[in-house]
């Protein structure tokens, strides 16, 4: 049994960019974390001060020395994180969760991201592009202003299809409508709000394309200790917790521990 706190990273903020009002990208000096982080994993960030819980944030970007987190300021805890300035310390726990499975990934991949879901898909796009894949990003938000970091994906080599609720950029409507009318890829990765993920799963199933969905949920511990973030899975899933069979063949897996990425065909939500 390991007794050392080996996945606690005492990092320092090296850059803070406001992608748009209310959306912050924090870059932290964290070489050990950067070395082991995989696409689709997340960290628990401990807000300095009087917060009552850590904040789960997707690992947005990484290089040899640093990791970046992208988040929307949505409450007290993210407000505290958004107030951090270069030079200030920030403790991160992680990397956490399974991440996307990109082993033997095909050469034509669609990534579907909605809202803050964009925070969890860049590393996957970069890895796929490095492997020579065509990567199309289907990216939706309420309005054009919130379609942040488009240039980062474009300059890396992604083709980008946009959708907004109000029509201020790309298709007016859901990003999954854009996906449905596009040439089908050989693999779909997705992260975003649950209705978007459900629609993505439906499209993937009807086109018989495998899809990996990174689920968003409220966490308490983020490390598998509290069972507050479960999702129903088929009993046969390799990600099912090793529980006794239930009558209906459904198990409830922890999004933070068995996920956050699940195979769309194994979810029973």
């Amino acid at each position: 049994m390991a007794v050392s706190a080996s996945r606690v990273h005492e990092t320092r903020v090296v850059a803070r960019i406001e992608a748009t009002a209310g959306v912050v990208v924090l870059r932290m000096q964290a070489p050990e974390l950067a070395a082991i982080a995989r696409p689709g994993q997340f960290v628990m960030a401990i807000p300095p001060g009087e917060a009552s819980a850590a904040v789960a944030l997707g690992l947005y970007d990484a290089d040899a020395e640093s990791v970046s987190l992208l988040f929307f300021v949505a409450g007290k805890r993210t407000k505290v994180l958004a107030a951090l300035r270069p030079g200030e310390p920030l403790v991160l726990l992680g990397p956490l969760g399974n991440g996307f499975d990109l082993r033997d990934a095909p050469k034509d991949v669609a990534i579907v991201a909605g809202g803050v879901g964009i925070a969890s898909v860049l590393l996957a796009a970069l890895e796929l592009l490095r492997a020579g894949a065509r990567v199309r990003l289907f990216y939706g938000a309420r309005t054009a202003r919130l379609l942040v970091e488009r240039e980062r994906f474009a300059s890396a080599g992604c083709e980008i299809v946009l959708a907004t609720d109000d029509g201020t950029a790309g298709l007016r409507g859901f990003v999954t409508d854009a996906l449905a009318s596009a040439h089908m890829p050989a693999l779909i990765l997705a992260c975003g709000p649950t209705p978007m993920l459900r629609a993505t799963a439906t499209i993937a199933a009807s086109a018989n394309v495998p899809a990996q969905l990174a689920l968003e949920e409220t966490f308490a511990c983020g490390v598998g200790g509290c069972w507050g973030c479960v999702v129903p899975l088929v009993q046969e899933s390799a990600q099912a917790p090793h529980f006794p069979k239930t009558r209906d063949g459904i198990v409830r897996a922890r999004i933070c521990a068995e996920g956050p990425v699940f195979s769309a065909s194994e979810l029973r939500w």
Binding site: M1, A2, V3, A5, S6, R7, V8, L93, A220, C221, V223, G224, G225, C226, W227, A257
Partner: peptide, 12 residues
Amino acid sequence: GCYGTGAEFAPF
């Protein structure tokens, strides 16, 4: 209910 079996928290 807050700490799993403990193993979950061993890395932290």
